[in-house]
Amino acid sequence: MNSYQLGLIMNSCISVIQVMGVFIITSLAGMFSLGQASFMAISAYFTFILARSLDLPIILTAIVGLGISALCAFIIAIPTLKLRKDYFALITMGFGEMISAIVVMCEKYTNGSIGYSRIPKVEHIFWLILAITAFVVYFAWALKRSRFGRMCIALKTDETAAKSFGIDTYRLKIKVFIIASCISGLAGILYGLKNRVITPDGFSWNLSAEMQIFLFFGGTNSLTGAVLSAFLLKLLPEMFRSLELFGQSLQVYRTAFYCVLILLVINFRPNGILGEKEFSITTVRRWVSRLLGRKKAEGGQDD
């Protein structure tokens, strides 16, 4: 594989990590955050600026960067999660815009909208990103299958009922939001390490919305659906970059493409492609055997 192809795979992996963050918030706990890109920005900027200015190893400053994302998530969550769900979506969106503005304002440290590029080079970045992606997916899977996953899904489907079984939904929501924001932060740091430059535009509202779209496309409650759609929807538009339509690269039509996709999904599969189902070896085997069965039947007709 050449470095361009490796780059595409790394981008898709980072997209998977981002979507795991919103998976935990939206699919497990039923909240809707439109500001997860800002946590990517917070962790990435703190990690790289501290590493540079204090001359510390990335691994240390990354922990600080993630901690600051966690702290910000905690501070937003305390007042907001007492309110109705829609306020939470609004506040996170506002928070995202605020972070972008702060990055531009603190030009002295962040280099403003030109972008911060004093990012150290890391060896074996490809394998690092692959390993962390695998870990984050595993994390989300294990979380879903634990008592925390069950409590979250209970909270998502019926908060009043969940409370009447002793679940402290307020604290649970805060916990979930903090964990998800750390995962978003992790995606931000990896994004910086891979691209070697971070700009406030790169962490804009579009990105937060994109994560939700990918998640929604894969299935409202399907981990495997979310992973697949995050990976493929990131990858496919890039593959068509060289193709042209009306004299412009297909890449330009990406947003339009997403919109059409979403409209189709809403119409035909309101719970996303996989809905609540998980994608597993047995499902694949069933599909394949069904497909083969159909082929055989067709073959029979030919005779």
């Binding site: 008592r147 069950r150 409590m151 899904i153 209970a154 998502k156 489907t157 019926d158 009043t160 009922a161 969940a162 079984f165 002793g166 679940i167 402290d168 409650n221 609540e276």
Partner: peptide, 19 residues
């Protein structure tokens, strides 16, 4: 008001989960 995303067994596990 059962929890729709969960199986019957998981629904019955939920009240034990907080502790």
């Amino acid at each position: 008001r059962l929890f729709s995303g969960l199986t019957v067994l998981d629904n019955v596990k939920v009240p034990l989960d907080y502790k």
